[in-house]
Write a protein that binds this DNA or RNA. Structure first.
Length: 311
DNA sequence: CTCCAGGTTCCGG
DNA sequence: CCGGAACATGGA
């Protein structure tokens, strides 16, 4: 719906054009980093923090309405040297396949709070569910903005959600995550945790502080460190990445979590977070079909080994 | 109907 | 440190 003639949209001013090499807008916005961008014509509408905007990519050029060049370049990390980053990755077949599959994907620099909040709602949820929850929360408590003719919403401040009731949050489909989001919003708005101050802290300390927030464990902390703080060595291990590590790099489903963590930190290097996101996007899009078959007698409960329904 | 999803927390070996 | 169980919801 909402397909209207071009004349009804705000096109009196020409779009800002930004050259962007080694960049893929669609993959970047649909790889499970941010959850609020909506398809609008041949581009995406959404907010970069408080700034409503519409962005499309045609070849090596970004067409932007509503946001300035600096905001766009920072958010999409166009300053990252992607060829240099990918050159630092290990050269195994799985990594090479993911690199080719997702080439041009950038690690975003998202606003701290909205990234943290989105990932608190992410546990045991599919990406589509996380997006649905994000939109519900934004439309309920955020501020309405116009992005080149599309209505978009900012993410509500911590103080706003801190003043909401757990019942109202649960009504957004949050389930048991409602209490986590509410109590974390309270910790932020009360000042017990200062998200901005963590930018200056060593990654270990920042991770430890993030993990002190209710509903935030190591995985979500690493997602926030990577997708908001742009700590490119942060390596979130979710169910998909765990499968990749076990099946590709260990060849058996036995390595304990601590072993996976230390392996990832040493094997993927200072840009491990980028490598992780390429691997994640590839394995998720192929629903595990890109993984090697399980080692000999491994259980059939893995993705590729899932028994098909009989009849 | 069953299975699973970008996990965290709590609890006993 | 490790593995298990509980925790809600909705789509495939």
């Amino acid at each position: 719906m909402n397909r209207r003639p071009a004349a009804s949209r705000n096109r009196r001013t020409s779009a800002l054009e930004i050259p962007a090499q080694h960049f893929d807008l669609r993959i970047t916005l649909e790889s499970g980093q941010a959850f609020h961008w909506i398809l609008a014509d041949d581009g995406y509408a959404g907010c970069i923090g408080d700034v409503p905007c519409w962005i499309a990519q045609r070849g090596g050029t970004l067409h932007v309405r509503g946001a300035g060049e600096a905001v766009v370049r920072t958010y999409f990390a166009l300053d990252d040297d992607l060829p240099a980053i990918s050159a630092s990755w290990p050269t195994d077949p799985a990594m090479a396949a993911a690199c080719e599959f997702a080439w041009g994907m950038r690690i975003l620099r998202q606003p701290l709070w909205e990234c943290l909040a989105a990932f608190i709602t992410s546990s045991l949820k599919q990406v589509a569910h996380i997006s649905a929850i994000s939109h519900t929360i934004r439309s309920r408590w955020g501020e309405s903005r116009d992005a080149a003719g599309r209505t978009v919403f900012s993410y509500p401040e911590p103080s706003v959600l801190a003043a909401a009731s757990e019942t109202d949050l649960r009504a957004c489909g949050l389930g048991f995550r409602a209490k986590y989001l509410l109590n974390t919003a309270r910790d932020i708005s009360s000042g017990r945790v200062d998200l901005e101050a963590l930018r200056e802290r060593p990654i270990r300390e920042a991770r430890e502080t993030l993990c002190s927030l209710p509903g935030v464990g190591e995985k979500i902390a690493n997602c926030v460190l990577l997708f908001a703080y742009h700590r490119l060595e942060a390596f979130p291990i979710d169910v998909w990445i765990e499968r990749v590590l076990q099946r590709v790099y260990f060849r058996r489903r036995k390595a304990p979590p601590a072993r996976l963590r230390s392996f990832a930190a040493h094997h993927f290097g200072p840009y491990g977070g980028y490598a992780q996101q390429y691997l994640f996007h590839h394995v998720r899009c192929t629903r595990g079909a890109c993984l090697p078959p399980p080692a000999k007698g491994a259980s059939a409960k893995g993705v590729a080994g899932r028994a098909q329904k009989i009849r």
